[in-house]
C-alpha cells in the first residue's frame, strides 16, 4: 500500500522549476526577489523570453547583475529601474503608463465601457418594441401551445 501511494505521489508531483542555477542566498526573501525579477525582466536579445529562460550572453549578464544588486539589498523597483535605465522599457514585461503607452492601457477600458453602454441600450430597447404587441404575443402563445399539444 505504501508503495502504491508513493507511486501515486510521484505521478502527482508538479513540474518543478528546474534549470535554475544554484545561487547562494543568505535569506529566502532575497532568493524569492531574485526569482521574481529574473522572470519579469525580458531578454533584450530574444524578443519574447524572460532572462530566466534565456541563455543569451546578455541574459546571463543581466542575471548576474540582478543577483549582485539583490545581494546588495536593493529593492525590486531599484533593480527594475537599473535595467530600464540601460535597456529601456522593453526590458520589463509591464510597461509604465506614459503618453506613448496610454493607448495600451486606455483601449481595453474604453472597449469595456462601450460594450456595457451598448448592452444597456439594447436591454432598454427590447421591451418597447416587440414585447409590447399583445396581439403578436397571443398569436405566438397559440402557436407554441399547438406545437406542444402535438407531442
Amino acid at each position: 500500500m505504501s508503495r502504491f501511494s508513493a507511486l501515486l505521489l510521484l505521478l502527482c508531483s508538479l513540474p518543478l522549476w528546474a534549470g535554475q542555477e544554484i545561487l547562494p542566498f543568505e535569506d529566502d526573501a532575497k532568493r524569492q526577489l531574485y526569482q521574481e525579477l529574473v522572470q519579469q525582466l525580458r531578454c533584450p536579445q530574444c524578443q519574447n523570453q524572460n532572462i530566466a529562460d534565456s541563455n543569451a550572453v546578455v541574459s546571463i549578464d543581466m542575471r548576474n547583475k540582478t543577483y549582485e544588486l539583490v545581494q546588495q539589498g536593493r529593492s525590486k523597483q531599484e533593480v527594475i529601474d537599473f535595467m530600464v535605465d540601460r535597456y529601456g522599457n522593453f526590458v520589463h514585461y509591464s510597461p509604465p503608463l506614459n503618453p506613448l503607452t496610454l493607448l495600451l492601457w486606455v483601449l481595453p477600458v474604453l472597449m469595456l465601457v462601450l460594450m456595457l453602454w451598448y448592452m444597456l441600450r439594447r436591454r432598454q430597447a427590447v421591451p418597447t418594441s416587440e414585447a409590447s404587441n399583445p396581439a403578436l404575443e397571443q398569436e405566438l402563445d397559440a402557436i407554441i401551445d399547438a406545437y406542444r399539444s402535438k407531442k
Binding site: Q45, V57, D61, R86, Y87
Partner: peptide, 13 residues
C-alpha cells in the same frame, strides 16, 4: 572585461 560597460551601454549583442 565581464561585459560590464556593454551592460551599462544597453548592448544586447
Amino acid at each position: 572585461e565581464n561585459r560590464r560597460l556593454s551592460l551599462d551601454l544597453g548592448v544586447s549583442g
